[in-house]
């Protein structure tokens, strides 16, 4: 009889297909106006990052010595820089560097951190010891020093597949690789701890009881329950990557060949004394907005995705 009651209830009131935690999280995000606003800002930045280099391909050469450090005006809404070039265009072009760095660094760091963390947490023993040793050692060096060290260490040519290729770690790819290589640690730690917890879950035990083997449990039962950590860290890692790029460029160790917000701040630091605030102002506002948007979006994403925060 119990079945009868349940069946009728289902047929009457409930949809046939359920909502997975993923689609559940997606619906929560859709209802979250602030998250949507942040996402829109991020999309606009991404759009600018793609469009700006196409719209202003010759910006670097549009030098105007009659108009150095001009104040904002109708024709130049954000003024001009020390070479008389448009700061509005410079700021828009800077988005490209930031977004590229954020994306590439995370594409390197997140999978690296997740794979290492999951392996360490799941297998334990000496494998765990090695990975923990690796990230503890790396984590004990201050981040900036590590960044600089990696950049300087690989500034020369490296051997690659039998012939000499130039790997110029001085430019944009250098920043991306250096950032990617050092910023997996946080993700790895989190994923390792979560894996150790998941490994003890009853459903993992149930899978073992029905004869599933080690690697297959890892892929079927553990990694799907870790993916949300990767996604959350991706969005939060973006912020770190953007700030790191700005800082490196400020120290003249970042990109040299194209405009970036870090270089703008670096270039403008002397102008500030002369009361010329517009270049530094434009870069700061640009950074502020994207960092804020990613931060809030990351938090909202965590609220929506983390199964532990459900039903609170």
């Amino acid at each position: 009889m119990s079945d009868l009651v349940e069946t009728t209830r289902v047929e009457q009131f409930e949809p046939r297909t359920g909502r997975s935690l993923w689609s559940d999280a997606f619906h929560r995000l859709l209802r979250d106006k602030i998250a949507i606003a942040c996402f829109v800002i991020i999309c606009i930045y991404a759009g600018i990052a793609i469009a700006a280099p196409m719209m202003f391909p010759d910006w670097a050469n549009e030098v105007d010595y009659d108009n150095l450090n001009a104040r904002p005006s109708w024709s130049e809404p954000l003024g001009t820089d020390g070479f008389g070039r448009s700061i509005l265009q410079k700021t828009l072009l800077g988005a490209n560097v930031s977004m590229t760095v954020g994306l590439t660094a995370n594409i390197i760091a997140i999978p690296l951190g997740m794979v290492l963390g999951a392996i360490a947490g799941y297998y334990g023993g000496w494998i765990d010891d090695i990975i923990v040793w690796l990230y503890s050692t790396l984590a004990s060096i201050p981040g900036l020093v590590k960044l600089l060290a990696i950049k300087f260490a690989f500034i020369d040519k490296v051997l690659w597949k039998g012939s000499w290729y130039e790997l110029d770690l001085d430019g944009l790819p250098g920043i991306c690789i250096a950032l990617g290589v050092i910023s997996w640690i946080g993700t790895c730690r989190l994923v390792r701890a979560e894996t150790m917890k998941l490994r003890e879950m009853d459903y993992v035990l149930a899978a073992r009881a029905s004869g599933r083997g080690g690697l297959s449990i890892l892929f079927r039962h553990i990694i799907p329950n870790l993916l949300h950590i990767g996604i959350i860290n991706f969005s939060l890692g973006f912020v770190g990557a953007i700030s790191a790029e700005v800082f490196l460029s400020f120290l003249n160790l970042g990109v040299q060949d194209r405009p970036s917000w870090g270089r703008m701040i670096s270039d403008a630091k002397m102008q500030l004394v002369a009361g010329q605030w517009w270049e530094i102002g434009a870069a700061t506002v640009a950074i502020f907005l994207i960092v804020l948007a990613w931060n809030i979006f990351g938090d909202r994403l965590r609220d929506a995705l983390d199964p532990k925060l459900r039903n609170v």
Binding site: M1, S2, L4, V5, E6, R9
Partner: peptide, 8 residues
């Protein structure tokens, strides 16, 4: 057999 209250 225990008597039950059906449903949830």
């Amino acid at each position: 057999r225990l008597e039950t209250i059906p449903g949830t």
